[in-house]
Design a protein around this nucleic acid. Sequence first.
RNA 1: CGGGGCGUGGCGCAGCCUGGUAGCGCGCUCGCUUUGGGAGCGAGAGGUCCCGGGUUCAAAUCCCGGCGCCCCGACCA
Length: 597
Amino acid sequence: MRSGCGAAPTLARAAQRPLRAALSHAHGYACKPMPRLSEYLLPTEREPPADAEALSHRLLVRAGLIRQVGAGLWTWLPAGWRTHQRIVQIIREEMDAIGGMEMLMPILQPAELWRRSGRYEGFGEELFKLKDRKDADMVLAPTSEEVITTHAATLIRSYRDLPRVLYHFQTKERDEPRPRAAVLRSREFVMKDSYSFDRDREGLDISYQKHAGAYDRILDRCGLEWYSVEADVGAMGGFGAHEYMAPCPAGENDVVLAPGYAANLEVARAEAQPVVLPSAPAAPEEVQTPGMTTITQVAEALGLPEGALLKAYPVVLPNGSLTLVMLRGDHRVNEVKLALALGSSFRPASAEEIERHLGPPGSIGPVGVQVPVLLDDAVVADGGGYVVGANRPDRHLRGVVPGRDFAFARGDVRAVVAGDRVDGHEVRIERAIEVGNIFKLGTRYSDVLGATYLDRSGVAQPVWMGCYGIGPARIAAAAIEQFADDRGISWPRSISPFAVHLVTLGKEGSEERALSERIYAELVSAGIDTLYDDRDAGPGEKFADAELLGCPLRVTVGRRTLQSGELEVQVRRGQEPRALPLEGAAAAIAELWRHVA
RNA sequence: CGGGGCGUGGCGCAGCCUGGUAGCGCGCUCGCUUUGGGAGCGAGAGGUCCCGGGUUCAAAUCCCGGCGCCCCGACCA
């Protein structure tokens, strides 16, 4: 918070002439102008738009912070933009603190660069493509690895030029297949993306750790509840990645959490809950399962838990070969982990392929098949036997023991479920929104775009890169989701559009109004960001709007204030009321401000 | 891409089935009253009924085509 930009005018002077003029002109101080609601654009709505589902979407619109332009396209209105900019500033400070240098790269980029990196086709339908008047192919950048690496190729020449961290805040364009929940997934949004350049892998590790520290501080300062989770390095390749997840109901990811453990469900590993198996006979026995094609049906018919059955998931690799993935009946395949275990992408086998290689879909199994079997790690026999499909219609096999009755390779390919354990602790699974990510790129871009430097011995080496993104809009939405109550938003103080929402209940010309003006001037002079509700409206409406907008402190000036000589301050979170002495109110409010969340 | 839903004043909705001068609540404007939890009375303003075509004497309403938006799933550096 800024401090003192001029003495408050006295009450007497305030009564003599328009206060704002006194503040901004007569005094000549460079006070940050603090809006009166009667002159501000804050279009609050009593009802949310009918198509808004997510809480953050409803509240952002109702509180007058954003408005829609098209699918996935949103305008930030003045108060909303204040929050956005506060988040941007926090990010900027923490990036600068780790030695980042702010710059700006264009959104509109030549397709040529993207062809060279292989992403013109590789990025997929999400990449906005267009042509300029000379018919040259262009793209609207969803991210800036190509441009920054091209710069690095010519601007970084020597080991002395490394390491470096460069970043910018820039609009990103992504033709999302399904924009949703207002700013949670939009087609155009501002992102801070930074890029680190190092001499080698060890240097990259250091840059990565610095970013991890910066991101920790950014999200703490923004007042969010958040987790850093291990992430899938995905299609981009890479040497490691973390995602920063903020738990919230409107989130799009599942995070697996246990004390000391946090991972994206896509990559999470945990110890499965045990299942009691019937003891295995000397050899598998066939059982009749007429018309039963699902795990549930067979388990029920045999009186066994679903975990005592094995589920078959035949997949086809790009080379056309078929692999039979087997996992416990109560588990589900995690496709990301499966691709990792297979070392390749895959697709589920078609019914026709299953029929040809194995048997009738619905009762296929691993015994006697001619295709490789990949057995999930959670399948442990331990003296017992499993029920599997017999590769014949209406038949299953009972008492099947992996290893004895079929050969297999091992892999962890199942999705973790709540109740599994990590280090003895049960895990829980929460919805969360990804607000940032950090990624060790390695030399993927420097190799293809020619970013090399000369090392100490004069040998050209590829630059080792990392990329790091964070989305202010998602941070804002996550903060709303995490802290809103039934009256509206409750901003963490660091990213609230205003610190104080000053409500006057006095009519124009009243004594209360004159007092309000004085308090307003004092707050502004004390450097406190204040929104002053001086509208000619009823108290109910003003309070409702204040609680909807969610500034941490609401200061009310009315007849009661005059009678009691005390100022009423409400802390938004918990709607806790307090009384402060009128004398020295601004200082007391500033002090209170320092202690709210 | 598959499935579902919706486009009528700034917001929320009715009217459409069964065609006949477009309505309600909130909001907005003006006046008076009111003023510590979305206040009252009175008077007003505001709509190419998403677009195009068709049927009809007549289309918000029926038919055909298109566009837009939302939700679920798939997908997702």
